[in-house]
Structures are given as structure tokens and as C-alpha cells.
Write a protein that binds this DNA or RNA. Structure first.
Length: 270
DNA sequence: ACAGTAACCTGTTTGC
DNA sequence: TGCAAACAGGTTACTG
């Protein structure tokens, strides 16, 4: 499920229901996620007020008076608001119980994470090495060009590296490269500033549009308000290997990069 | 510094 | 139809 737009959609969906509320209890049914959920988590946030929810890259940062709780949705996680005493399904691993509702974390593959970062969250190893936010002014074609240097790594892997720019996952990397007309296997160090400007622009456009549409619904992703995302209807080539390129009608091809499927148009992307 | 791969999990799709 | 392999939105950690 979650690339940046899905995480942002979750943030916006859950925020109005729980910001300002206090944590009553935390129920951990399955502590074994990517890393074990700290056993003393409740002691950090019990009776504490949730002040705000930020997003950095694909991490959600729940800011309490006492410090920051990090939540990552991994490949298959989702967060949603439920009434108190909602019945529990398989993979509903954690409930954060507030005064009037609960925030439920569900994650079949358990690639996500729930960690306590305390009062200096940005010193955390997970956050301190991240590149710029793609929708910020710090993210530009110049930035990409500069970091690319002479690197030989395929550009698709380059823009999916969270140290280069955050929040661009397989779907949006595929789409942005298509829109910019750049082959996913072109060496990162072999792309002009001009083409990187175009790529940075396309990344911004696509992410902005995807957020506007509530994220991409794959499998059973729903935003924090339970509504599905509609961006999938807008995808141009992701998941469409073999069908006609929307620009030139040539059959779309795909290849593996770092064991991730990469769809591209052999004619439009050079 | 860089590039490539294995690893963490379960559910669904694909292929024989 | 049945079963096993392949594959899926992410990221770290390890290897050479």
C-alpha cells in the first residue's frame, strides 16, 4: 500500500479524530513488527495528550506532550479510526485507545514499525539520514543532478533511495519516469540537469495529484476515514505491462531492478 | 562511496 | 483442480 500519498492520506484521515485527545490505553496483540514494539510504550504515552501528527518521508510522527511516537506502515499496513470496543480481526496488531475512539494498526505482512522516539525524534537513526521531502523547495532537479555525480546506479533505484529524496516508492517512481520520458535503467550519472528538472517536476505533480485523490488503492488500502483512494484510476503504466503505451501505443515492457518490477515504454523512455 | 543482495512476513496470483 | 513458486506498496543491514 503505502507510498507518500497513502501515508499523507492516512495522516489527514485520522488527525481530526484524535488530535487533542488523551491516550487511555494501548493494546498490543502482536509486538513483532519489523522491529519489536517497545514493551514500555504505554508508560511513555498513557494519559498524555496527542498534540499533532506530522509526516516525514513515509513515517507518521505522533507528537505527544512527552515525546514522539513513530509509525511506519511498511508494505501492507494501514491505520484507521474505529469505535471503542470494535471487534478484532486477524492482523489487527495494535489499538491506541483514546477517550472517544481508537486508532487501529493493521498489517498482514508486519513490515511496518511502531517505535518511541522521545523528545528529540529527529536525532533518530531512522530520520536523520533522510533526503528532502519531494514536495519541498529543497527538492529540485539541481539537487538530483548534484547527488547523481558519476553514479552508475539505474535512475529508478536512485530516486527510490530515501537518502536522495523521500517518499518515492515503486509506483510513483515508475510513473514519474514515464512522464519525464526517462528510461528506468539509465545511469543516474548520465542524465542532464535539464532532464532532472523535468523529472523533479513530474514527481511533484504526480505526488500532489495522488494526495488530492486520496492515494492509490491497491489491495485493500483505505485512508484513515475508511474511504478508498482513487489514484489507481489515474496510473498511466504501473501494472500495465503488455498493454499499449498511452502516448505512442507501443507495447509496454517491464524489467526487474533491485527485484522490483519496473514498467516502461521502450519508445518514449530513453 | 558505491552496488548488489538477503532479510523481515503473509496473502494472492501465476504456472505447471 | 491442486500445489508450489513467484510476487506484492518498503527499508535496513550486510557483503564485496
Amino acid at each position: 500500500m503505502p507510498e507518500l500519498p497513502e501515508v499523507e492520506t492516512s495522516r489527514r484521515g485520522i488527525s481530526p479524530h484524535i488530535i487533542g485527545s488523551h491516550i487511555i490505553d494501548v493494546i498490543i496483540r502482536q509486538p513483532q513488527l519489523r522491529w519489536k514494539i517497545p514493551t514500555d510504550l504505554l508508560s511513555h504515552i498513557q494519559s498524555r495528550q496527542l498534540l499533532s501528527i506530522d509526516r516525514r518521508a513515509k513515517y507518521l510522527l505522533l507528537n505527544f506532550e512527552s515525546g514522539t511516537l513513530l509509525i511506519h506502515l511498511g508494505m501492507s499496513g494501514n491505520l484507521r479510526i474505529c469505535p471503542l470496543q470494535s471487534s478484532v480481526e486477524k492482523h489487527d496488531h495494535v489499538d491506541f485507545i483514546f477517550d472517544n475512539c481508537l486508532l487501529r494498526y493493521t498489517d498482514p505482512r508486519r513490515f511496518g514499525a511502531i517505535l518511541w522516539l522521545g523528545l528529540t525524534p529527529h536525532d533518530s537513526k531512522l530520520l536523520s539520514h533522510l533526503g528532502p521531502e519531494p514536495l519541498s523547495d529543497a527538492f529540485t532537479g539541481e539537487h538530483l543532478f548534484k547527488l547523481a555525480g558519476k553514479r552508475k546506479i539505474p535512475v529508478k533505484q536512485f530516486i527510490m533511495d530515501q537518502k536522495i529524496v523521500t517518499g518515492v516508492g515503486n509506483i510513483y517512481a515508475t510513473e514519474a519516469l514515464f512522464m519525464a520520458g526517462i528510461s528506468p535503467i539509465r545511469a543516474a550519472g548520465n542524465i542532464s540537469t535539464k532532464r532532472y528538472n523535468r523529472l523533479a517536476e513530474e514527481i511533484k505533480v504526480i505526488l500532489t495529484e495522488a494526495i488530492k485523490q486520496g492515494g492509490t488503492t491497491l489491495k485493500d488500502f483505505v485512508g484513515g476515514d475508511g474511504k478508498p483512494g482513487y489514484f489507481q484510476q489515474t496510473l498511466h503504466i504501473y501494472g500495465k505491462t503488455g498493454s499499449h503505451c498511452p502516448k505512442c501505443k507501443v507495447a509496454l515492457k517491464s524489467l526487474k531492478l533491485a527485484s522490483r518490477n519496473s514498467v516502461y515504454c521502450p519508445k518514449c523512455q530513453k
